[in-house]
Design a protein around this nucleic acid. Structure first.
Lengths: 217, 217
DNA sequence: AATAAAAGTGAGTGATTACTCACTTTTATT
DNA sequence: AATAAAAGTGAGTAATCACTCACTTTTATT
């Protein structure tokens, strides 16, 4: 719970921010998610937030500065569970099976994204166009997270629970399946009735069977 | 081959277009893919194309009109193989196994996207913000393509080659795995050395095992 | 209560935006 | 060769853009 609701955490719980600054961030998140960063004007954000346009630039040097102050913490929180120090310990103690680990991970991150859909949209949309975000993505996700995942994958491979593919392929297939569900669920067809538990379970089973070790002949 | 290189097909082979119009389309595709639609100005496109700005508006009523004239044919071509009349016949004759069908489909669409990366980027980036494109996507992909896929899935399910999940789940998992590969390959890490054949084969095996029928107890 | 610092304001800045239009040049039609 | 239609042009337009700054109001410090 304390992990969800980034908007709250970025905005409401942060006592360094003034009241007006919080209104600005809320308005910016809403507009960026809806129309995209480039198509949103600072005057529009000021109007929606109910502040003068000058107030935005009192707190953020540029419009891009405002974007980064929103997106950077979101990316950090998104990958936080994968870079905690004791991930391996948690793993060995609590998750005997790959299935349980996978289930816990998916539930955890799905809940997080569910609670932060507009921020998720902004991150997805702006990474291709913002070199600073690409740098963050590559340095943190592609390197730090990948290293952690690699260790976990090795663990379960040695354990005989996981097919002997290169770790990057295992990561790609797992990530594709999970993001495929999340994007369909929250971005493409949010208006449909979804049985989240059943969908997640089916996704887990798909991944597990897809990555099951080859049967010995 | 004739199916690839949309840019050629939209532009060079289309004899309805004037020389300058072709230059405009080429420049627009390049800039839209690189910086995004909203962040690209018409003056910039004119400059890159080496034409007067007025020439753009002689052929396209608005900037959005220019975008749609690029993206709509791309979307149509992308889904073309799935809506041909005789897809089911082709299926029954040529693809005894789900594996062969899947392999042919992935190769075909991967080649197509590989030959049209900038257009692929534009489609992915602009769908969330352009209601006209969303409508096209839902009407053509989500309905027409899905219907075709449903029939194919039923066929292989009755054949005992495919797990008995709801077709939309089968589609989602298959599409996630394929797009996951393509996005990683061409958009996230195009600079890495990829063994395309091996990657595609691994992706096919992942999908096949993930969607294999449950063994009877 | 006096002073300083921080927060907030909104009119104003030059640059840029998508788009127009009167005009010239090229191409097609007879 | 004459005429019309289509293609191309670039200066001009009002609107909007991100951002500044002199000024007022609020908050913190002593």
């Amino acid at each position: 719970m304390s992990d969800n609701h980034m908007i709250d955490e970025i905005i409401d719980k942060n006592e360094n921010l003034t009241e007006k600054q919080k209104l600005i961030l809320e308005a910016a998140i809403e507009s960026f998610a809806e129309k995209g960063y480039a198509a949103t004007s600072t005057s529009e954000i000021a109007k929606k937030a109910g502040v003068a346009e000058g107030t935005i630039f009192r707190h953020y040097k540029t419009k891009k500065d405002l974007l980064l102050s929103i997106v950077a913490p979101m990316m950090a929180k998104l990958i936080a569970p994968f870079v905690i120090k004791d991930l391996n310990k948690v793993l060995n103690q609590d998750f005997e099976s790959l299935e349980d680990f996978l289930r816990a991970m998916i539930h955890n991150r799905a809940e997080f994204l569910n609670a932060n859909i507009p921020l998720f949209k902004i991150v997805l949309q702006e990474i291709p166009f913002q070199p600073e975000l690409q740098k963050q993505f590559k340095e943190h996700i592609a390197i730090k997270v990948y290293e952690r995942m690699e260790a976990i994958i090795n663990h379960y491979q040695e354990d005989g629970q996981l097919i002997d593919l290169p770790p990057y392929q295992v990561v790609r297939m797992t990530a594709s399946s999970i993001f495929g569900f999340l994007i369909g669920r929250y971005l493409l067809f949010p208006e449909l009735d979804w049985d989240d538990e059943q969908e997640i379970e089916a996704t887990i089973q798909f991944i597990l069977h897809g990555l099951a070790p080859k049967e010995k002949a």
